[in-house]
Amino acid sequence: MYLAFCGLVIVVALSSLGSMGGGAYSLIGAVFILVALGVLLVMNWADFVIFPLVTNLLGVSFQPAKDYRIVKTQDAVVKNVNGLFYATGYVTANVFAYTFKAEQQQQDQELKAVQAPETWERAVMNIGFPFKYHVLSAGLDVQKVRDELEGKRSFQEFQLSRAMQAQNVNEMTVTEIQRKINVLQTKIARIGEGEKPIATIMYFETTAVGVSEKAALDLLSAQIKQLEVAMSGMDVQLARIVGRELYTLFQFNFSLPTTYEEAATNFDIQS
């Protein structure tokens, strides 16, 4: 909705370029409009790139609560406790192999499930600093999810039949569509077996301490790198969280979203 409305302004602006009498002014105007369009598109899909860039450029930091400060790079929350600085950073940690994204054979999944507790323990033993691993989950409406998945499967089946009827059948496209259908089929089958569909947000939180803010932030960055190394044994995708999601996760320390919708609006990109 936001993109549609703001895009409309861009379209109107483009059509009004003629009122500038043409020439250099119209050209400069067109450049402004195109830059604005570019910013809107980046903001829509990757606001976490633009936002820290702006705050870093302006040197702006935020105080989300008493004694806390979100630094200008938007990647850490710092707490000052009697002159000691505690920097906390967050890292997404979506464990793919154990979620619906899996499309492996049942045997492969079982093997991963057997190895998981030991791999986790080994990873934890290699970490010499405090951290938290959070899994925020919310149950979804079974019927709604099933209908949605069946709709997606029908669409993919339609795509597959179109790809098969083409004069030059592209093997790559067919394989890709079949893979998507298999993933959807696995999800539908799991719901059919009685598994409850859930939405999850998984993330790491780690804290470093230092006598200055810089020392704490440097140590935090080192800890996050170590965390990535330690967790490399698990099938997990790690990415440091910046921007508004950092602020949301900071708030999760004191209160969680109370409905699924509330959680989903905060993490529409991650979900």
Binding site: Y98, V124, I127, P130, F131, K132, Y133, H134, V135, L136, S137, A138, G139, E195, K196, I198, T200, F252, L256, P257, T258, T259, Y260, E262, A263
Partner: peptide, 20 residues
């Protein structure tokens, strides 16, 4: 652990914390 994560219909968070 998988079952634990799906217990609650409303949002709930499960955490493993390593602290000094």
């Amino acid at each position: 652990v998988s079952r634990l994560v799906g217990i609650s219909k409303s949002p709930a968070r499960y955490t493993a914390e390593l602290h000094m």
